[in-house]
Write a protein that binds this DNA or RNA. Structure first.
Lengths: 153, 153
DNA sequence: CAATATATGATACGTTATATCATTTCTATT
DNA sequence: AATAGAAATGATATAACGTATCATATATTG
């Protein structure tokens, strides 16, 4: 059983637990995102699915499916980059922490790392001191990846 | 000398120091953003300038001016919200810290707070451990403001 | 099987942002 | 002041991102 098939079966089990349906179409979109191994905009993904899988997706459908996958925590939406990326931890089995994303400004590679508890606490305290309530501590940071950083002058 | 005039004169001085020109048009756009007292999308601002100042701005011009003002640190771009907001500290005189923005998901109010040094350090260390290089530690957080949080059920 | 809920298809449109080339305005130097 | 070069703005078109709406198809439940 290869890695993607394994991830898909985990995804399916997770959906079943939530009473949600991982339909064939949703599965194919998730597979596309997994195979591409990077963050893609909805329109990038439409192109990718057409080229690689000969599957025609409309924007409406694509956004709907991506929203579904995000609501199931199988995919994360990067608001900063307007892109979507498959969750790195679908097969982990444990409850997911709030993700923190490092987005390479050069090549759009995305690394998902766990957020440190102490950081969340500091953040939450900062926000509360300002009289606000934190809705989601998901962080998205403008970075350079190792490759692009070494290429830079 | 009222508050906006004071801010404008600070802004002008700051531009002069950098050898940049705060033209009349740029000054009017900045004034608009200051008077509106909230974050606005480029197109929001175009509407606002037409209604309040009877000034017709084209998208191209508007984006150019907003980019200029951002490059002079007079305005911040909120990537999460696709909006622009006047810097809260134009008249402060001190070197600016990296801003951190609390964006109300309900009413789009934005509060700009200073980022704690220790937080930046933790963040930078996290990123380095992942093999990435942090480009900008500007944080934008999904929040509720005091008003909206109290209204919420 | 029928009724209902959920998912997808199809079309159109609204919003956000940029590319490109022309024109105007400013600045510095003679 | 004249003028050459740089910077700013105008104007048009179009690309990229995202949603509204209504129709149709597929699954689930009683």
């Amino acid at each position: 059983m290869n890695s993607i098939a394994k991830i898909l079966s985990h995804a399916e089990a997770s959906c079943q637990t939530n009473g949600a349906r991982l339909t064939d179409k949703r599965k194919r979109v998730l597979t596309g995102l997994l195979k591409s191994q990077k963050a893609q905009s909805a329109y990038d993904l439409i192109d990718y699915m057409r080229k690689e899988f000969d599957e025609a997706l409309q924007p409406t459908t694509t956004y709907r499916i991506l929203d579904f996958l995000a609501s199931e925590n199988l995919v994360h939406k990067l608001h900063l980059a307007n892109k979507y990326v498959a969750c790195s931890h679908i097969s982990c089995g444990h409850a997911h922490e709030v993700p923190q994303f490092l987005i390479c400004d050069e090549c759009s590679n995305v690394k998902e790392i766990g957020i440190k508890k102490s950081l969340i606490n500091t953040l939450t305290r900062n926000v509360e001191e300002a009289g606000y309530v934190l809705q989601s501590p998901q962080l998205e940071l403008h970075c350079l990846c190792q490759d692009c950083a070494s290429k830079a002058v």
